[in-house]
Simulated assay, not measured.
Amino acid sequence: MKSKSLQIAEAILKHNYQLLNENFLDNKEVTLSTFGELLFHYTNLNTFSEILNSDNLWLFDSRYCNDEQEYEDGLEKVKYYLFDPLNNPPKFYKNEIRDDYYERSEYETEVLNDIYSKLIKEYEVLNKNWFAYITSFSKPRFPEIIDPGDTLWPHDNLSMWRGYAKDGQGVCIGFEYTGLSSLIEGIPGLYLVDVIYKENQKEFFLKSFFRVIYDLILNFRGELSGGTEGNLNFELEEKFGTISINEIFEAGALVCLFIPSIFKHEGFIDEREARLVYIPSLSQEFDKRVQYLRERPYVELRDLLEIKQRFMLPITQLTIGPSISPTDKINFLKSRLYSKCTERSIAILKSKIPYRSSI
């Protein structure tokens, strides 16, 4: 059962992603809200066998990602933009954010101080048990901008083969987005979200979040003016009724905890990553389901879903890597794994990239 604060936090995150899309998207970017096709996961053949045979995915502690500073950098941005007293908010936020909901350029010092003292307090309480577990996917681009010579096909991307699929000797699994999204729907602390790379988008996301919290407080105090159409504060009030000041700050702290797991260095932008993210503190669950693989903490998707009966992951496509040896390819075609793919109508493709592995 999701708490009221968690539902408010989820609404804020959804709202911020909508604003981000409206203000920054062009026809060369794809987000989870702008397509309904496949997500791609690069891995080795043995891991694919485990995924298919168990219909399970493994989410690993984000502190063990290929970007070793990822969590720390994301956390520093949250602290800098929201908590650092040297980063003067009234001055910092005077530049207007371009959107349809907010036009405020002035912030009341009393409200700002209230936000700082209470949001930091809630955040520090929750942050003591903060962990995020993730598994990653690559998103497609819009078909109309892909030409036959494009090296960034989502299921046949050389940099992805090199980095995540045993230097081209692995496979790329295509998951149906709508099926995967439906599978995790309603599970506390488990989300399928876009990764944010660009610095100006990260800044915008944090500023937009701050404005929501600020206006929620004004609304609580009966000081918020303006129309109701398209305004998140009034939508939340309509859905939840009166929102207490404690619920506002707890929801805000939950959002602050979540943000570091969706920020990534701009150097990884070509990966066009979407993530399945699980945060135990958002689900209000202790880390009792954590296991370890060579000292790397992880949780299993099946445990998070708490589904006892058999279910099938929505796998619809498999691309064989460019460097799989002829022997391995023949063995795969003769294997039970191949038979299982055909039984489940999984389309099997072959990479068209002429790449020879160095492994």
Rank of each mutant, 00 (worst) to 15 (best):
M1P: 01
K2R: 15
L6I: 07
A9S: 11
A11P: 02
E22M: 10
F24Y: 12
N27D: 09
K28P: 01
E29A: 09
T31F: 04
T34H: 06
T43Q: 02
I51L: 05
N56F: 12
S62F: 04
Y64G: 01
D67E: 07
D67K: 10
Q69A: 13
Q69S: 14
D73I: 07
L75I: 10
K77E: 03
Y80S: 08
P85L: 12
N87R: 14
N95E: 13
R98S: 13
Y102C: 09
R104S: 09
E106W: 06
V111I: 15
L112W: 04
S117E: 08
I120L: 13
Y123V: 04
T135Q: 00
F142V: 08
I146T: 15
G149P: 02
G149M: 10
D150T: 11
N157G: 01
S159L: 14
S159Y: 11
Y164R: 09
V171H: 02
I173S: 02
E176M: 10
G189Y: 05
D194V: 03
I196L: 07
N200Q: 13
N200F: 08
F205G: 02
F209G: 02
E223S: 14
G226M: 04
E229L: 10
G230I: 09
N231T: 08
N231S: 08
N231E: 04
G241E: 07
T242H: 08
S244F: 11
L254F: 06
P260M: 15
G267H: 09
E271F: 12
E271G: 07
E273L: 00
A274R: 01
E285V: 07
F286I: 10
V290P: 09
Y292H: 11
R296F: 08
Y298M: 09
V299D: 06
E300A: 10
I315N: 00
D328S: 12
K329D: 03
L333T: 10
S335I: 12
R344I: 01
K350M: 06
R356G: 06
